[in-house]
Design a protein around this nucleic acid. Structure first.
Lengths: 231, 231
DNA sequence: AGCCCGGCTTGATCTGGATCAAATCAATCC
DNA sequence: GGATTGATTTGATCCAGATCAAGCCGGGCT
């Protein structure tokens, strides 16, 4: 992140799903109300307990959102990719963050001031609806995670995760190569597993012929076979 | 639930926090678009996989929302009290329910048709904002639960639960009697504990002098003492 | 009163997954 | 290339919390 070429906020914002059907004027308002944050790998975007300065939108790079326990261990709640936003709930409730966010690689974030978002909600019902849909999606995904954590075994969570990744990375293919988008330790924590146990599960499943592991690439011969493994 | 006195939807809806500052005309529209559902104890409101007929609003009574595993065990996600609504996310995304809902006692629910809610969002930015706040609250609470499940021990979750209940039931009192609003087994599942282990934790904590148990009533001498127990 | 049934407790045992410790591998930097 | 540092694996051990199996209320019913 050492080049200091000025960031053109409008074009960036216009590409984000949450904003991409907004008229140009609105985008300009948002751009004016937003701040560029440049993070290098491992840089912190916000910490637990801080109050939220606005809506975070990832332009490029990758962030992990995690809880930290008193004993230094942490639990990754979400991994944010380019185009995703974060902090809607805290913004609307004006509550401090329960988690912290850290860049997994060099990352660019725009922070849109809360007032600009609130204005937009009041002025543009279509945007409110879109925001509502985004939050619904997040709520729904969180429910799925919760179901996994409380009802499914570690191996089942790993299989489910790989299936979802395969569906995203190579839709509708019977065979797929899934590339883990983050270090195994981070994925492990995301699945609520210790790195060691995650490694063992991966090993076991590959021994059972579900897939082959090559570093961060998981080669799946038969996606439908994985699906069966869930039963 | 054996009296069949017709339910006056308007007055009921007008008392629900989500709708209570809507103009009378809007309330009437909602009432017209909503259906009364009467459930007796253990009656099912909806099942996993069903598509959602509208927004559920609890008028009186109590519901549990839970995941069911293939082996018959279940995990309670939420306990809904009178005045609460449920199903916003599924409604907006048009996704089937991931969980089922069952009445814990005789319960009255209004189901507001999805179209009426969508209209209201498009027409009334204030309502959209209110809905957004409600979903933020739910998202935030879910995050707190998740933090508990993944990072805290069983005993810590029980203490946290009791502290929140005390804060709701007897705000700002140093001593409090917390009445468990549901059978212990349901609370246990809500905290992601087996009934047996929940019972043991309660026993242990009371032995350590944190509180005294009388059936479903937990007598807390010193709320601040409980807070210390969390460290 | 006596009976029944569902909710709760208690005890004994088991296990998924964590933790600790050490070895191996991989990427980067002199 | 060798050294350094972090990521991953492997092995041994441990533990929070589940499960299984009885007992034990307490309250509604006849």
């Amino acid at each position: 992140m050492r080049d200091s070429k000025p960031v053109h906020k409008e074009t960036h914002l216009g590409r984000v799903p949450l904003f991409d059907d907004l008229p140009g004027g609105e985008i300009q308002q948002l751009a004016k109300a937003s701040k560029v944050v440049v993070l290098e790998k491992c840089g912190t975007l916000f910490r637990t307990g801080e109050t939220c300065p606005g809506l975070h939108v990832v332009m490029y790079g990758q962030l992990k959102v995690a809880f930290s326990s008193t004993q230094g261990s942490e639990k990754v709640v979400d991994i944010l990719q380019a185009g995703q936003s974060f902090g809607e709930a805290e913004l609307l409730l004006d509550e401090p963050y329960r988690a912290h966010a850290q860049a997994l690689c060099d990352t660019l974030v725009l922070q849109v001031a809360g007032t600009a978002i609130l204005d937009l909600i009041a002025r543009n019902p279509g945007f409110a609806h879109r925001l509502l849909n985004g939050m619904s999606r997040r709520l729904h995904d969180l429910m799925i995670d919760l179901e996994g954590y409380t009802l499914h075994t570690g191996a089942a969570r790993v299989l489910t995760f790989l299936l979802r990744e395969a569906a995203v990375q190579e839709p509708c293919n019977e065979s797929a190569v899934v590339r883990l988008s983050a270090p195994k330790g981070v994925i492990a924590s995301r699945l609520n597993l210790s790195p060691e146990y995650f490694s063992r599960i991966l090993h076991d499943l590959s021994e059972q012929g579900y897939f082959a592991i090559h570093g961060r690439d998981i080669h799946i011969d038969s996606v439908s076979r994985l699906q069966l493994g869930l039963a």
